[in-house]
Amino acid sequence: MGIVLILIFIIAAIVGYFIINKVPTLLHTPLMSGMNALSGITVLGALTTIAVVVKDYSSVLGTIIGILAIVFAMVNVVGGFAVTGRMLRMFKSKEDK
């Protein structure tokens, strides 16, 4: 399983590299902040681990760490996507005016 996951990581990185290569410098800031939002996807890991804490053993410290992980990841996700959207809505062409 571990090897498969590492492979998926590498393949995703390569695919991502080619897709992102097409983004013009004009949009580099929104691209970066969008990617930044996506990096908060680690919230999935936080949910997976807190599930184990909740179900298998109830540790106060574990619960706190888990909740904090979800909070930080979620700030990253929500803040990131919202900020990206805000920036993208500012981009207007001549015809849009």
């Binding site: 995703a12 990185a13 590299y17 897709i19 990617m35 999935l44």
Partner: peptide, 24 residues
């Protein structure tokens, strides 16, 4: 972290973000 907890989705998206940052 995705590899550690065994979550495919996390692994794949982490890879994409990693590549994008590196490209930039």
């Amino acid at each position: 972290a995705g590899i550690a907890v065994g979550d495919v989705l996390l692994v794949a998206i982490g890879g994409v973000v990693g590549a994008s940052g590196l490209l930039l």
